[in-house]
Amino acid sequence: MTAPAILPVRGPGDRFTALIWRQPRVLLALMLGPPLIWLGVVYLGALIALLWQSFYSIDEFSGLVVPEFTLKTYAELLRPQNFDIFLRTVSMAALVSLASGVLAFPIAYFAARHARGRWKAAFYLGVMLPLWSSYLVKVYAWKLILAKEGIVTWAAEATHTTAALEGLLALPAIGGNSLSTSYIGTFLVFVYVWMPYMILPMQAALERVPTSMLEAAADLGATRGQIFRTVILPLALPGIIAGSIFTFSLTLGDYIIPQIIGTSKTFIGMAVYQFQGTAGNVPLAAAFAMIPIVIMLIYLAIARRMGAFDAL
């Protein structure tokens, strides 16, 4: 006797299997439903609530939120003191992205082209650990380093370069009383904290640059500098842009680093935090929060056009 070609149904589990086998869309809907509901309701819902609030305004006398549609709050963003916050944050984000790119390049290039076997693993861990390890601990470490009585001052004394350090701090606008209360300090910590995000996409892009192309360029008589400028850089550009998405976005929204290290001048993230908290001006905080959203959406659109998403 031969077994039947179709096995008998053993219970609800089998009936369910038959259903999703015949109607794959049912399975798709069942799997997609919960995460979509979560992100759609919790996250998108919250973003819409934020957008909504940014069109409200605050009554200047009572300090209460007026729930009426208006563009008044957005107009406030253009006031000089608010526009300064915008300029300060965006130029810091641009400088941090640029510096991260320059510092990250040798690491990414070495890891992509020269490191093999154990060294490759060591480089990978060497980038991944600082990337994932505690954000606050990293910021805290820099507070220790940059403090007036800290290791930088000590190192400057030990190497007799105190004059150079003081000269740096005496610079107008970016200097300050000590490194931990100057723009230089804020900049250093931003670069330190976000640079690992630049290395990994950059390395991935560099790994995809074919060695044969570099050899061809060299055979045709290009110098190292020419190979770098005309072959490596254009081919690695999508990876660099992909990395800059992170460094730019993360600097744009950070409010802890400029609060702990730097001149207590306001950045966009701090403005959002202060206006919704102590000032109680939620509409203005919401309008401020729209700035990084809009900038990042434009940035992402440009990055997509330049092929940066393939490098992620």
Partner: peptide, 8 residues
């Protein structure tokens, strides 16, 4: 940025 998620 985290601050956007937070305030939203």
């Amino acid at each position: 940025p985290g601050v956007v998620t937070g305030i939203a």
